[in-house]
């Protein structure tokens, strides 16, 4: 009976009158009522699908030049059969890039890379930032001072400049760019976390757990963290967008992903001088970056509204 009861939040076998709704469920419902958030989610779903299936849906190898395989020129215009391109020519939806590779295949593989970059940098930054912010906010005093002053120093630099500085120390490369972007985004999470912890640790339910004999560990992990999570989720979603943008910028400057990696920023960077002669080679990578960033921003805004604590008591 005990196990059945404790796990029975999902099952409503006892009927409607006994149905219970947790805050997460309310948030979920409210999220699904926002059109812009759903658009963001839909775009993201397509991108995730592309990223997962790139190796099957991409018509060509993104790394291998087509020299000797097909009769195509460098930076040849897109050839789309539906739009009147002769059927005897091979189809290249987004044209051929400067190294005679299929641009469309490279764009598809780029989605995989960008999402990995976004999620991994933000995950790393969140783990470090949350721990630092929670420790600072909960224990306060000199520990808090030291942590937050270091964060202030990191925040004092424009994030991209600092990322460039870190990459120049570590050396160019995708992994180093990821580390650099993680480091620059730590302060944002540390601050958000610290602010939530500062307000939540004064709540009576935290005092109640202490009065019941709960340890600092139990208080932080079972009482404070779950309640501090909502602003962090919003920050993280928006943070993925800026991490992808930063990574693209670093790659554009030649500090991130190195050729021949199909990374949108580096594809943009390597063809930037051909913007007038082959605009499609600049347009598609730029458009994809824009679409990805937009989807995360829409999603983040939707989550922010859905998680708004001022609406927390309203049934969705």
């Amino acid at each position: 009976m005990a196990e059945e009861k404790s796990k029975s939040n999902q099952s409503n076998s006892e009927g409607l009158s006994l149905k219970s709704v947790s805050l997460w469920q309310i948030t979920w419902r409210r999220f699904f009522k926002r059109k812009s958030a759903l658009v963001g989610l839909a775009i993201l779903a397509v991108l995730v699908f592309i990223a997962l299936t790139a190796q099957w849906i991409a018509p060509y190898d993104p790394y291998k030049p087509l020299i000797g395989i097909e009769q195509v020129q460098r930076r040849e215009k897109p050839c789309i059969h539906l739009l009147g391109c002769p059927m005897d020519k091979p189809q290249h939806l987004m044209g051929i890039d400067g190294n005679v590779r299929d641009e469309f295949s490279r764009i598809l593989y780029g989605a995989r890379l960008s999402l990995i970059i976004g999620f991994s940098t933000v995950s790393l930054a969140i783990i470090i930032g949350t721990v630092l912010g929670a420790i600072g906010g909960y224990f306060g005093g000199w520990l808090d001072n030291i942590i937050m002053r270091i964060m202030d120093v990191l925040l004092a630099f424009p994030s991209l400049i600092l990322a460039i500085a870190i990459v120049s120390v570590l050396g160019p490369g995708l992994i180093n760019a990821l580390i650099a972007i993680s480091i620059v985004s730590i302060p944002a999470y540390a601050r958000v976390m610290r602010a939530s912890v500062l307000s939540i640790r004064e709540m009576d339910y935290v005092s109640a757990t202490r009065a019941l004999g709960g340890s600092n560990f139990q208080i932080i992990f079972y009482r404070i963290l779950p309640n501090a999570l909502t602003p962090l989720i919003v920050q993280a979603t928006l943070g993925i967008a800026s991490a992808i943008l930063d990574a693209a910028a670093l790659s554009f400057l030649g500090l991130g992903a190195q050729p021949p990696t199909p990374e949108w920023g580096s594809m943009l960077g390597s063809e930037r001088n051909q913007v007038f002669t082959a605009p499609y080679l600049v347009f598609y990578p730029g458009f994809m970056i824009m679409l990805t960033v937009l989807s995360f921003n829409l999603l983040g805004d939707g989550l922010r509204d859905a998680l708004d604590p001022r609406l927390a008591h309203v049934h969705g």
Partner: peptide, 28 residues
């Protein structure tokens, strides 16, 4: 033990109340 003034701040909004009531038993 203690009983708090504000009934809206004294219960963790993310925890079912049965869990809240059992919390002390679990801790000990």
């Amino acid at each position: 033990q203690i009983i708090f003034q504000d009934p809206y701040a004294s219960l963790d909004p993310r925890v079912a109340i049965g869990e809240s009531v059992m919390e002390g038993l679990k801790i000990h």
